[in-house]
Design a protein around this nucleic acid. Sequence first.
DNA 1: AGGATCAGTAAGTGAACACTCACATTATCC
DNA 2: GGATAATGTGAGTGTTCACTTACTGATCCT
Lengths: 196, 196
Amino acid sequence: MPRPSLANDKRRELIPVIARAFADLWYRRTTTAELAKRCKVQENILYRLWPDKKAMFIATISYVYELAERTWAGLLDRDGSGSSAERVLDYESRHLGEFGHSRIIFAGLSETDDPEVRRALARMYQRYQRFVVEQVASHRDGRSHGKEADRALTAWALIGLGTVASIALEMKLLGSRDRRRLMKEMGRLLLDGRVS
Amino acid sequence: MPRPSLANDKRRELIPVIARAFADLWYRRTTTAELAKRCKVQENILYRLWPDKKAMFIATISYVYELAERTWAGLLDRDGSGSSAERVLDYESRHLGEFGHSRIIFAGLSETDDPEVRRALARMYQRYQRFVVEQVASHRDGRSHGKEADRALTAWALIGLGTVASIALEMKLLGSRDRRRLMKEMGRLLLDGRVS
DNA sequence: AGGATCAGTAAGTGAACACTCACATTATCC
DNA sequence: GGATAATGTGAGTGTTCACTTACTGATCCT
């Protein structure tokens, strides 16, 4: 019998390093040589763990999303002031882009011609939107409302808010103070959304 | 004396073709060979008009934004129902992404390491935001309001709305009906934004 | 007409980079 | 201990692609 494969452990060990590289260098400038260097292994070892660069990237997409979801779950468990939606919003307004989450997504967006990348991104967005819908629902629950804005649409709008905040951050168009106000004030407006 | 250069005319003539290519193929897959083919010229002619591929891309960023602004200006001149902001919003809800505007911007986003590309994109976003601020202001003008939401933030949120709608379109996550509702309903909510 | 530069053609060139091959070494289980 | 397959090393390789060079022909000005 041969020695048992540790490939899964190795993948788990390397993916954060790979994610960091994609976040730092986007897709094009993240060469496989650079990945190998950062992982402190030879290139062909990466190719034993994933079939190609694209697969490494797709693995990264799942990784960063799950990382974010775990973080949010942590916030929801803990007690705190405001609805859980408000807590997530507040958290995001302060930590937005800390890990490079959005950089990876933007990098992915310009690879959407590739059907696999597109599928991976679409799946991620779907989960993301569903998560936000739940937050919107639980936030509005119990509050009296006339006619509330559609929850699915509200969720998309909130995601858009985070997206534009990331872009403005990336472009240095908003200082951290304004970025935070953007998330909080506009987020509140959308969360409480009442249609006339 | 030599013959006068027609380079400027040529640039103006080719840039829409180049923009189309970047919108179709993003940045990476838009090879200079492909650009030459679509423009029906040899590669080195492109290099006589622009110093490098990056410059061609930067030129398309300005081009697509100015195209959009001209379109909106046309809407504002014409009479129609609703405030001018509502008309722009309505127009965008129906024509979003028609030209590939957002694809070019997303392509640019993943080239933001390059200082020139970043500057070009940042300039574009600034003009865009200022334009939207004006629309918000003129929309709210004359309407009675308690405390209105900050106009600059509202403008950013509206831009985010358009962005997420483009992404959802790109990913085929929203049908055209929902996309339109997203823009109209959430757009209205933000435009009318009242903070408590 | 003639000089000067612009416009166009065709064939490269050099570098970057995703991906691979051949081979040595190590660990695991019988 | 030895069979087996994992892990590691290092040097390719073939292709793609941004960008260039060398040249011919067209057009404008004095």
